[in-house]
Design a binder for these strands. Structure first.
Length: 340
DNA sequence: AAGTGGGGCAACCGCCGAGCA
DNA sequence: ATGCTCGGCGGTTGCCCCACT
């Protein structure tokens, strides 16, 4: 009888890990330790959900209409994002790349010699060989053997790998004059650089918006509240997540273009521009007419919900935040029926 | 400048053994 | 004793980068 697959492959991310996935995984393992790999992805996803729940608690105070938009975006995010990785993939990523004691960089001549001798002794038992090389992984040893030593065990020559490593060596690791350490450009890193470009574009947009604001001081108040709102929570101490939203005005209907939670950018999970259609559908469901700017139903609903959240007695939202959030969470839970 | 092939590496696949109910 | 789950391991694949033509 064959083994059942470790997890359903349907809907799982594959291929190179993104910086965000690395962060989710690293944060989770730092908090809870490794092991339980099969249940880890789901559990790590809960961390995101808790962060978003916290985010919601804060933003529920800001503006009820905005909350609707954020709500929908969050719902779609929770539905389609998270750490959608096989547990084995999580384990591999942690052990081979994210572990803090991983030693990056070129294998020293001593290590190379040790690998040769151990391989002669142990054969292809890479985990045992790697166990004798602190900070080195079996995958790294295996790759090194397969790509270099197996081809030319007797006389390893200087390769372009070595040349590259010299030119890209990290100065901080080279201070003692030892063999220079190669700065690996992993796939995740490449993705990260791509994401940086995205952020820069967004920043440029924001800068342009700020310039517009400066040129048109009358709009400053409105744009400040709609375009970029950053909240650093003080209520729960240093462990509180910080997050920021960015909105974009388009055809007078603002929608979330991105937000960050403790450095995690949701724009890395899905394209907000493509997401506009979802917003329109949702908006159409709410209002019955996406283009109707003076929709009274939405306003009425907002007022009713605000009244409901306020307990109908005009007390402060903050006072009922916890209970209100419970209501909101159940609303989010039931979002699928409501949206579709 | 464009195409191509090889090197290097991360990630996936499938099997195995230990542990547990 | 048996079957299942899970972590670990080695082999392999696929992608990206770069040197070469």
């Amino acid at each position: 009888m064959g083994r059942s697959p470790c997890c359903s492959k349907v809907g799982l991310n594959r291929g190179a890990w993104t910086a965000t996935e690395d962060k989710i995984l690293t944060d989770y393992i730092k908090a809870h330790g490794d092991g339980k790999w099969r249940s880890l992805p789901k559990a790590a996803g809960q961390k995101l959900i808790s962060l978003i729940s916290y985010l919601f608690k804060i933003y529920i105070q800001v503006e009820i209409r905005t909350i609707f938009k954020v709500w929908i975006n969050l719902y779609v995010f929770l539905k389609f994002a998270g750490l959608k990785r096989c547990g084995k993939s999580c384990r591999l990523r942690w052990l081979n790349y994210l572990r803090p004691d991983i030693k990056r960089g070129n294998l020293t001549p001593d290590e190379q010699d040790l690998i040769i001798r151990l391989h002669r002794l142990l054969g292809n038992r890479w985990s045992l060989i790697a166990g004798r090389l602190p900070g080195r992984t079996d995958n790294e040893v295996k790759n090194y053997w397969n790509t270099k030593l197996s081809k030319n065990k007797a006389q390893p020559k200087e390769s372009k790998f070595d040349k590259k490593s010299i030119t890209t060596s990290s100065p901080c690791n080279d201070h003692d004059g030892q063999a220079s350490t190669k700065v690996f450009r992993t796939k995740a890193m490449r993705l990260m650089s791509h994401q940086v470009r995205q952020v820069m574009i967004n920043n440029t947009q924001h800068q342009q918006q700020q310039q517009q604001q400066q040129q048109d001081p009358d709009q400053n108040h409105i744009l400040d509240s709609n375009y970029n709102s950053t909240v650093e929570s003080e209520s729960t101490g240093g462990s509180s997540p910080s997050f920021s939203f960015q909105y974009r005005e388009e055809n007078s209907s603002e929608y979330v273009t991105g937000f960050d939670i403790e450095g995690i950018s949701l724009s890395e999970f899905f394209d907000f521009d493509e997401f506009c259609d979802v917003n329109n559908v949702i908006k159409g469901d709410i209002t019955g007419n996406p283009d109707d700017q003076s929709n009274t139903d939405l306003v009425l609903n907002e007022e009713l919900m605000l009244e409901n959240w306020n307990g109908g007695d005009g007390c402060d939202i903050q006072a009922n935040m916890d209970s209100n959030f419970g209501t909101s969470a159940s609303f989010l839970e039931s979002g699928e029926d409501w949206v579709i």
